[in-house]
Design a binder for these strands. Structure first.
Lengths: 146, 146
DNA sequence: TATTGTTATACTCTATAACTATA
DNA sequence: TATAGTTATAGAGTATAACAATA
């Protein structure tokens, strides 16, 4: 595969198209991480839910859905899976009994520690000088207003 | 939505996770571009095929599949759509009569010029100082070896 | 009346295997 | 024997609407 930089190379018109570059980079990264996490029975999605449940203030399913840009109904299935395996537990939110807070169990905490070792640190794949600018930028794009 | 930078904020554990950040940024970007392209009957996918067909050396379907990380069978459907609308045309590759080269028609060239105006320039959404490092990095990640 | 989680459903996207024509 | 495109199909992911419990 040839890089998309030179004007005469394959994909010259796409070389600076954000949607294309992000889609391809995202596919590469999540495919790699899904493979790495497979031995633990996790995917990037379920790993992300687990990571969110570790927040100092555990999130409701609604908050998980917004943060991961998923439909609330998709979060149901993800939490169902993690809960059935004893990795997280649903707890009724004391402040709003409609909402369910997703809390990590001790087993979940241990699993996360293992999983974190398996997912790639993006900066190891980048020129060191560009890494911090990349993280700033991708976070900026990820959390843009609609 | 709160940014994922501070250690006590929502998503602290995910703030530097490449798969998550890239997936979210990719979702934001392609959703925006899909909306922008809708009036022309294009999506990011079909726009990308059209852009590739504009290469100095028009690509075969196989080359399009590799570049966009799609299965060849998905490219069939995308080219079917574009061809039925007179935007591209399949031509048997003279050097290998199994392969089909995807060439842009004059109508396709005109449509692409319109479409290119509609898709967002990523750099307008970034801190100017970070933009070039971001493009270098995301391209590096997008075209990493498996 | 509005919102959270849930279920059901349809739609799109993705992955796989088989077929044909060429190599 | 292997490869490019095609077709069919099944699985995963996504989007929408409706419902019960709660606000």
């Amino acid at each position: 595969m040839v890089a998309a930089s030179a004007d005469t190379a394959r994909g010259a018109e796409l070389a600076h198209n954000a949607s294309f570059l992000l889609a391809r980079a995202s596919a590469v990264a999540s495919q790699r991480d899904n493979r790495a996490l497979a031995p633990l029975g996790l995917k990037v999605r379920s790993f992300s839910v687990l990571a969110l449940a570790l927040d100092a203030q555990p999130p409701t399913q609604r908050e998980i859905a917004e943060f991961l840009r998923l439909d609330p109904s998709q979060v149901v299935a993800l939490v169902d899976d993690l809960e059935s395996r004893g990795i997280v537990a649903r707890e009724t939110d004391a402040r709003d009994r409609r909402a369910k807070v997703v809390a990590v169990t001790d087993a979940g905490r241990a699993l996360y520690a293992e999983a974190r070792e398996l997912v790639a640190d993006v900066t190891t794949h980048l020129d060191a000088a560009d890494a911090s600018a990349f993280l700033r930028s991708v976070e900026q794009l990820a959390f843009e207003e609609e």
